[in-house]
Every structure is written in structure tokens, then in C-alpha cells.
Write a protein that binds this DNA or RNA. Structure first.
Lengths: 332, 332
DNA sequence: CACTGCTATCTAAACGATTAGATGCGATGA
DNA sequence: TCATCGCATCTAATCGTTTAGATAGCAGTG
């Protein structure tokens, strides 16, 4: 008895049923640019409801030249850090009634460029770029298409691009101060194998914070757990572990923890650790990690805000210190 | 010296420059339904290249009634399991030259329904649903709109919906057999607090696999690390821990590990653990987790295939056993 | 040479919504 | 009573592609 549903309902259908033109229906649907008499509005609303009318966003987009869709270029959704960021960006967009196109660029500048082109062809209203490194020419392409772009976790530093990131200097300073409070003199840092992206900034911040201490060691390895794990085992075997360590990412911190565990090194007794990341996971390691938590939600919100708003000069979002056990504190 | 780029290039621009009609250009661009003389094709291609023409997908979508966009409804992208699944789905779609709209439903059936409606209004060509539980009425809505829908991690069991999932029975049987091989007689199971979704199937599979053993204990807690952690501490304090345990998810397994560590319980010596999940993380816990790895990539591929293809009756994807240390094996 | 049959191309009507301009109508004021 | 004003509404152009139907040119055939 139900109507055949394979013919989608259009504005014209609603207009016919309400006995008006498509224009009025449009005016009613989106409190149009012109007013509509109350009685007519009622009729239209009723007709729309009865027919189950759903505006076709594609048609609307073609005419109004705005799709309500934003492209999100992600390095890798299976990385929990990026995944969480993606989720917050999507939700910030949904709050503004926009949809999110997602794509994984997988750490490749080529693929990132490709994705951006595909998104631009889909007429996105904006681009949010959450990539590990590189991909700086994206700004040009987006600009050429007249589409605003915002980098979130890190971005080109030439000042032309809008970049939202945590205030690393601040965070590292706080972490160093905390470890000093535990009596540590020399605070080592575990960064990435190559200097690039936001971790370079974290290293710089660490260098500033420990300036004047020639014994503060700089360690390096890949951002994977495996790499940090084996580095830690190697250092433990050589008896070359520092007593206090700040890691650039949770992945590395967790690798350090498992490497230390495997080598019989006590954390935080023999080795105190603070990570500059703060994924939810960090609360459930053994021992629980003390971190400076990346303010993902605030960053996502600011990024989306920046997409529409004017150049609010993105002053860097504060990353709070979350004290757990790996630093030497004994809360429970 | 460059052209003002704010006026996007259209088919008509290319046609004018090539001295043809828009029809031929269209035929050339997509090896149209009609042939074009070689010489003309060359001219068109040249003109398009010179102008940097990019077809407007929105206009194309409006006319051809197919957007090349698929909606991906996700419970929560910050969960690494879902994140990885999302990534594989996106990449399987990209291989077929389609774009992915993403949305986080956050374990709420209402939000899921809402998202599906938004996606349908955006005229998606298909829907991939990766949600934890519930949301079964989505099938109806999609069907009414004539859009194919596939559930991935779990879905309604009424047989009307297309569901791609790992073969849990098979996986659990293998895990139980392996633990028995280590000499364990009674193999406990840690499931979710409430019976629902795919974990119910895992529990059922476990019940089948340990049938006849009245001492095989069924434990329950939330899927969070915190819950599993505190449950483990409690059981350890009461000296009520089993000797061999299969957990429904890695999150729980990791919680068990940290709870055991905090309670001085040796894994795998006092408590052997196998998780039915297998996120990348499971390789880097202390000790490394033995798991039946969910075949995420294969599942994603099959889901996307199912979206276009006919009802290939989704026979369940095999989840291989990955032997590490938490089961009692001593590989290194 | 008239006619048929191809091929290569052009013309123009969709797709479904938005919105500027035209229109109709009742109320108001002179 | 007529011109005027405003409001509510209608008409139709438009966004950029796709594609069915019309057309033109040319070769082959009787």
C-alpha cells in the first residue's frame, strides 16, 4: 500500500501538493530570502512532511556553489592520534551542519596532493589537512580553487598557511620543570629519526628548556613502538639509559615501557618517563604514563572555526600536564 | 601573469577553445557513449590541458544521478580498531575511484540514524556501516532510497542485510585449541558487560568450543581498558583469576595485562591470555599478546565489493591466529 | 543523379534547487 | 476613482554536465 519509493520526492512534488510554486517551497524550506504567508507556510510544511521530502544536497550545491562538505586529509586513520583528531574534526563540522569527506594520505606527499585534487573536484567548501610532514604545496592548489585550507597537527611554516597546533614550547617547559621537581638534573629527549614536522618543534622546545645542560641527551628513533622498544633494550644492555626521559609521542613512550620491562628496568624508579602526546591509551599502560595531553578537541574546534572565520592568528593551544605514575609521582 | 583562477573552468570553456560543442568534449572526457574523431579528440585534450580543466563532480552527479561517494558510518574513529577499518574501507573505495564521507555515530542509534539520513540527502551511492550495536533500521531507510548498504563489523541478523564479519567460531576454536595445547583445561572468557553485537557471537563460539567443561568461567566487563584493569585487580585480590583467558577485545586484554602487572600476577606464567582482536598495538604490549587477528583489510575489501556486486553470500572471513607470548609460547 | 547509410558533430532538454525580476491584488491616500 | 505601495506569489533563468535526437557531409549503390 505504500508509495513506490524509488522515485525520490522533489521540490516540484511538494509544490504541486501544496498548490504553490517551487519558489515558495524553497523559501519555506530554508526560511528563504523572502517571507511567506503563515497559512501558506503551513500547507507547504504539511505537504513536505506527508511526502517525506528530503532536499537534494547535490542540486542545491550546484546552484548555490557551496556543498556543505569539507575534505579531511589524514595521514593514517589507524593511528589512534590521528583517528581521534579525525573524530573531533568531524564532530566540530557536524555541529555546523557540514559533512566530512575523508582520505588517508599515508605519509606520502603524492597521495596527499592527489587526494586534495579529488576533494577540490568534489567542490569541497574547505580543507583540513592532518598530515605528518611535507605536502606544503597543498596551500597553492586550494588557494587557486578559492578553497580555504587549515593544517591541524602541523603545517608549512612560511606564514602563508593557517596552522593549528599545540603550544609545544609551553608543554615541554612544564614537563621539564616537573621532572626537575622530582630531582632529575639531566633530562633526555626521544625524538624522531629525522627532523621534520611538529616533533622538530618539540625537540627545539626541549633544547630551549634544558639549555645550559650539556649532559642532556638527545635520542632518536622511528615513531613506532617497535623502534622505541628495541632502542630501549639496546641502551639498557649498554647501561646507557638516562634517568629521566621525555618522549615525543605515546607510541614511543609505550615502546620504551615495553623495552624497559623486558630489560628489567624499573619505571619510574630507574627511568622516569613523560610523553608529549597523551592518547587515551597512555592512562592504561604499566605504569600509567604521565603526559602533556594534546588538546585534540580544542584544536579541531579551532581548525574548523578558522575555516570559516577570518585569520584569527592561531596562538597555539595549551597542552595540559596530566600527572600519572611514569614520572615518579605516586597518585593512585 | 597567471590567469585569475577564481573563475573555474567549465566544459563550455574547453569546447569554445577547441572549437567544438560541449557534447564532444564530454564524449572525450569520459570516452563518452559516442566516438570522437581522433583529430578532434586531440584538440579537445589539448584545450583541456591548457586550461587546466577539472570536471565539476557536483554537476556530473546531478545529471547522472550517481555521485561516486560512499557514506561510512563509524562508531568511533578514535578507537584504533574502527580507525583501521575505516582506513581500509576508504582505500578500497579509492581504488575504485570513489570518495568517502565519514561520520562518527558514537554508539548511539539515534545519531547513527541521523547520519544515515544526512548521507542519503547527500545522494551517496552506498553506505558502509561499522557500528558497535543496534541501528538495524538503517537497512530500511537505505532501501527506501534505493541505496545499497553493507554492515561490516557486525549487523542485523535478520538475513535481509548484507553483513561482512570475521568467522568468530573458527577463530575461537583455534584459540581454545592452542591454549589446550599449553595444557590448560579450563579456559575462561572475558566478554562485554551486556550481550550484544559481534562479541555475543564470540561468546557463543567460546561456549561451543568449551562445551562440556562446567568450570569454564564467563567473565564480563566494559570494553574499556579501565574496566578490565580493575576487574583483574579485583579477581587477583580474591585469588579468583583463571589460569587461561580469552578476551573479546584487545582493549580488554591490555586492561587485563596492566591489572595483572599491578597485582603482581605473571603473564603468561600464572595467567595465559589470548585476545580475539589483534590491533597492531597487541604486538607491543608487555608481554606481547597472542591474538586471532581480525582480517580488517579483507573485510573492507569484501564490504566494498558487496556494495557494487550482487549478493555474494559473505561466508565470513578467516581470522588467523598470531602466536606471540601472552599464551605461553616463547618465541622471540 | 537520387537515394541510402554511415560517421562525426551539434542542439537542446534534462537533473533539482535557488533567486532575481515580473505580476497580481488589496489597502491606502489624494 | 485612480495612482501608488507592499506583500505574497509566480515565472523562468541559472548552476555544469550528460546524452538522446537532429543534422550535415560524404561514400557507395543502382
Amino acid at each position: 500500500m505504500t508509495k513506490r519509493a524509488d522515485k525520490p520526492i522533489t521540490l516540484a512534488d511538494v509544490a504541486r501538493r501544496a498548490g504553490t510554486s517551487t519558489a515558495v517551497v524553497s523559501y519555506v524550506i530554508n526560511n528563504g530570502p523572502r517571507p511567506v504567508a503563515a497559512a501558506t507556510r503551513e500547507r507547504v510544511l504539511a505537504a513536505a512532511a506527508e511526502l517525506g521530502y528530503r532536499p537534494n544536497r547535490i542540486a542545491r550545491a550546484l546552484r548555490s556553489r557551496t556543498t556543505g562538505v569539507v575534505g579531511l586529509v589524514l595521514a593514517d586513520a589507524s593511528n589512534p592520534y590521528f583517528g581521534a583528531l579525525a573524530r573531533h574534526v568531524e564532530q566540530a563540522l557536524e555541529r555546523r551542519d557540514r559533512l566530512t569527506l575523508i582520505g588517508n594520505a599515508g605519509y606520502s606527499a603524492d597521495r596527499q596532493r592527489d587526494l586534495v585534487d579529488r576533494f577540490l573536484a568534489a567542490q569541497v567548501d574547505g580543507l583540513v589537512i592532518v598530515s605528518a610532514e611535507g605536502g606544503d604545496d597543498v596551500t597553492d592548489r586550494a588557494e587557486a580553487a578559492g578553497v580555504p585550507a587549515v593544517y591541524v597537527h602541523h603545517g608549512p611554516s612560511d606564514g602563508r598557511a593557517r596552522v593549528v597546533a599545540a603550544d609545544n614550547h609551553d608543554a615541554v617547559r612544564e614537563a621539564v620543570a616537573h621532572l626537575r621537581g622530582h630531582g632529575h638534573r639531566h633530562i633526555a629527549f626521544l625524538g624522531g629519526a629525522h627532523d621534520a614536522g611538529p616533533v622538530a618543534a618539540r625537540r627545539t622546545a626541549w633544547e630551549a628548556a634544558v639549555a645550559g645542560d650539556p649532559w642532556a641527551a638527545l635520542l632518536r628513533c622511528d615513531y613506532s613502538r617497535a623502534a622505541a622498544d628495541s632502542l630501549t633494550r639496546r641502551l639498557a644492555a649498554d647501561d646507557a639509559l638516562p634517568r629521566a626521559l621525555i618522549t615525543a609521542t605515546d607510541e614511543q613512550a609505550i615502546g620504551v615501557l615495553s623495552g624497559a620491562w623486558a630489560s628489567g628496568v624499573a619505571v619510574p624508579g630507574r627511568l622516569a618517563v613523560i610523553s608529549l602526546d597523551g592518547t587515551p591509551e597512555s592512562a592504561h599502560t604499566a605504569p600509567a604514563l604521565t603526559v602533556t595531553r594534546q588538546p585534540l578537541e580544542a584544536m579541531a574546534e579551532q581548525a574548523v572555526e578558522l575555516l570559516s572565520g577570518r585569520d584569527s592568528g592561531a596562538p597555539g593551544v595549551h597542552a595540559p600536564l596530566v600527572i600519572r605514575r611514569s614520572c615518579g609521582c605516586d597518585e593512585d
